[in-house]
Design a protein around this nucleic acid. Structure first.
Lengths: 339, 339
DNA sequence: TTGTAGGCGTTATCAC
DNA sequence: GTGATAACGCCTACAA
């Protein structure tokens, strides 16, 4: 049994039957005598036969595999997303191929080519958004795909499932303004990313509604690792502000870490709110207020959209799904601070 | 370009050459005229050709894909592991298929069958250890595989890469004893898991060395979600202890969360130490002492072992790699508590 | 009820 | 230099 893989042929020669009798018996086809079926199935089990679906898919044209392309599974945001996609996919008998792009354009291109060359039935991708090239490539290729978590604001003809980032940015900012903060540091993600742009729009809208002007000095891009630590330290030393809105919970944690190291108290000296509500999935010592974006919901919807695109190839419908965002209030923004 | 996939055949008929010439030209074989090669390559690019490696692997027998089977990618421990495996694999031009088992025996079996049926070249698996059945199945099947993070203590003839769990358990416990704690609550993982057993052995050794007896009431299994919250609450209310050693950082965070909710101070009232040192990859607000198990190292070694098994199928060498563990001291065990 | 033929896309081998 | 052929493992359609 060791060494070479058992194929239908091996079973056939052992059973003294033809390859395709074996094939059909194992698929429980009616046209094989029940007795024969039983014998064959037992033999297959005995020999440890595991079908070669890769070979079958060469014929059928589908692999029941979808690629999930994200920047980094080690980031809990994506880890949770990937898990939920995998879970949903498993229900539909699909397997997922995970590829990380590290937010890099070239790696993203390679990821897409790899996925296509492995004949996946479709792709769920959180695009690095360095350019539209890679997305255009998928489109030209004809492979079904859905964007998750990010979209292209200008060339808006790709299907996507995102959360309501503008509203999330608005809710977070309004919440901080409501409890008395006037100068809110926004630790935002890289500007090329749509969710960063949209959350910023929400940040602006909340300010406008409150009759306040946005101070550009308080809006920082912390895309690179290390940025958050440097920025928070620098801002605490040089600027006056009383609250932080972080692009995501991971950045928020890092900011809190720095503040604690510097001896600042949360929420008394600095209130802080994140985005993603990872605390709903994991108990982190310091409860962080956050914007819930329901990753499970996004994952399921993205998969559904992808499956319908896979199953109705002719269909030219477009899918633009926006999952609601809500405010989750925890102690990191408790109390208030009239400055 | 939309709809159907471009194949060698399509390029061949467009170029007026044979399929085979196209194939060889695209692989830069010397026996095709340089001029022809250029023309073909340009044409392929123009037509958006992406090779069907699935078809190729039917012939070659390998897919350059490995399956990574873990219980849950959303757990940062596995998320980080998967990321590091993916990164190492990418360097060797391998892609990974990620399947979650949720620590369930049946899902694990399905995961393995799926992986094999998709013709992966090998499997890296963190076994649920409900039984050895599934591992035996892989062995009988002949697919190259390596266990990661866990091993089978009795039937020790499977290759593995683990960290030094016994030493880790010893170091964590000794550290707490050294700073003055005498009653240490051990929030351990499920007993069927080797790492839980081995960390417990370390916990015992440290006690013995210190001339203390292990109180069985202080050793709790918190395998299921929710266990940690219930257990910590119950223990704080009913038992006396001054420190906690948690099976992993995620459990430690949860314990800290509960302690904070109950108004207990860390480390003054309860010192706490985790395992995995996730803080080396993520800044979590409250710095948690932990045992570092170098997931990056484990991931790379596991991949190397797997690759050598894939590349030397005849080789009957066994691989039992144990990565060192070290103590990382942070504020969650600062100060001491002479009780 | 079972067997035979052909083809999915690619590649290795050998002939032209 | 380039083309024809067979083969990888499986499946559909049809013949026996």
């Amino acid at each position: 049994m060791e060494g070479k893989k058992i194929t239908l042929k091996d079973i056939a020669s052992r059973a003294g039957l033809s390859i395709n009798t074996i094939s059909r018996a194992l698929k429980d086809k009616e046209d094989i005598a029940p007795a024969t079926r039983e014998v064959i199935k037992r033999l297959a089990k005995e020999m440890g036969y595991v079908g070669n679906s890769a070979a079958g898919s060469l014929r059928s044209g589908h692999t029941r595999t979808i690629a999930v392309i994200v920047s980094d599974v080690a980031n809990p945001h994506f880890g949770i997303m990937v898990k939920d996609i995998e879970k949903a996919a498993r229900k539909h008998n699909y397997t997922i191929l995970v590829i990380n792009t590290e937010e890099d354009n070239e790696l993203e291109e390679r990821a897409i080519r790899t996925a296509i060359s492995k004949n996946v039935d479709g792709i769920i991708i959180c695009p690095a958004q360095c350019s539209t090239e890679n997305i255009e490539f998928m489109k030209r290729n004809g492979i079904p795909f859905v964007l998750i978590g990010r979209r292209f604001l200008e060339e808006n003809d790709y299907d996507y499932v995102i959360c309501d980032d503008e509203k999330g940015g608005y809710l977070a900012t309004k919440h901080l303004l409501d409890i008395g903060h006037k100068r809110i540091l926004f630790l935002n993600g890289p500007q090329r990313i749509s969710s960063a742009q949209e959350r910023y729009m929400g940040y602006r809208r909340a300010h406008e509604e409150a009759g306040l002007k946005v101070d550009p000095l308080l809006v920082k891009d912390v895309g690179l690792p290390g940025d958050t630590r440097r920025t928070v330290k620098m801002m605490v030393e040089n600027e006056s502000f009383t609250a932080i809105f972080a692009f995501n919970d991971v950045i928020a944690w890092e900011a809190m870490y720095v503040l604690q190291m510097m001896g600042c108290r949360i929420p008394e000296e600095y209130a802080i709110i994140g985005f993603d509500n990872i605390h709903s999935r994991m108990f982190i010592p310091f409860p962080l207020s956050s914007i819930s974006s329901s990753k499970g919901e996004m994952a399921r919807r993205a998969l559904e959209v992808l499956l319908s695109k896979i199953n109705e190839p002719g269909d030219k419908k477009s899918y633009r799904e926006v999952v609601d965002t809500t405010l989750i209030w925890r102690v990191s923004t408790l109390g208030h601070n009239e400055s």
